[in-house]
């Protein structure tokens, strides 16, 4: 039983290593998810998943290592723990906390309130249904009617 198990593990590691080679070039979603939680140490200030340096000395092997660890069934937390153990707590990138989510949505809500206030302030009190004749009813303005009519005829 015992020899079988270790040879099985060895097989897993070999397969994982083969997978990892390609994983570094095209990280799977799983690798990207974990990689996004780890700061790349190459000086780019990006995460392991987003470091865009080709042939990066840190993010490339790190992605391979993540893929290997996932292949042997380690959970995301365990992988991150392993990295934190090796590189110190500075490597951990927290996922966006509640602020990250609330603020953009709050801004939409705030905007809606502003629009509501705007409409309330500038809305004419007159109801839509009140439609008078298509005439200028104000006597002060009536004298301009002729000129307007003349100009209107010239439109187009």
């Amino acid at each position: 039983m015992r020899p079988f198990k270790s040879s099985f593990l060895a097989l897993v590691v070999v397969v994982a290593a083969a997978l990892a080679q390609t994983a570094a070039e095209k990280p799977t979603l799983d690798v990207r998810r974990v990689g996004a939680r780890l700061a790349c140490q190459c000086g780019c200030k990006d995460s392991v998943a987003t470091c865009s340096m080709l042939e990066c000395g840190f993010s490339k092997p790190a992605k391979e290592r993540i893929a290997r660890m996932q292949a042997v069934g380690m959970s995301d937390d365990q992988i991150i723990q392993a990295f934190v153990r090796d590189y110190g707590p500075g490597i951990y990138l927290a996922p966006p906390n509640a602020w990250g989510w609330i603020v953009p949505y709050a801004s939409v809500g705030f905007g809606l309130v502003v629009i509501w206030l705007f409409i309330r302030k500038y809305r004419k009190p007159k109801p839509l249904a009140e439609i008078g004749p298509a005439e200028i009813d104000d006597p002060d303005l009536a004298k301009y009617k002729d000129q307007i009519e003349k100009d209107l005829a010239k439109l187009e």
């Binding site: 298509a134 200028i136 002060d140 303005l141 301009y144 307007i148």
Partner: peptide, 9 residues
């Protein structure tokens, strides 16, 4: 038209 009239005024 009303607006126009007030501009003319």
């Amino acid at each position: 038209q009303k607006e126009l009239a007030s501009v003319l005024a």
